[in-house]
C-alpha cells in the first residue's frame, strides 16, 4: 500500500475530487495545506477558488 496512486474523480456536473498523496500549489505558487479529499472547482463560479463551494448547483453546471 506504500505506492498509493493519486486519484482524480471527475464528478458529473460538479468538482474534481482528489484523494491520495498530492501537493497543491496555489495560483501564487505557494503550497496550500489541505488534507484529502480535496474538491477543486470545475465550474468557474466558486467563491472559494480553487476549491468547490457548491456554486455549480446554483449555476446548473453541466459539461
Amino acid at each position: 500500500m506504500e505506492n498509493k496512486l493519486t486519484l482524480f474523480k471527475v464528478i458529473a456536473g460538479g468538482p474534481l475530487k482528489v484523494t491520495g498523496p498530492f501537493r497543491i500549489k496555489g495560483r501564487d505558487g505557494k503550497i496550500i495545506e489541505k488534507e484529502e479529499p480535496v474538491l477543486l472547482c470545475r465550474c468557474g463560479h466558486s467563491s472559494n477558488k480553487p476549491f468547490c463551494d457548491g456554486s455549480h448547483k446554483r449555476n446548473a453546471f453541466s459539461e
Partner: peptide
Amino acid sequence: DPTSIRIMR
C-alpha cells in the same frame, strides 16, 4: 513526488 497539483492563475 507526491503528485503535483498546480493552480494556474
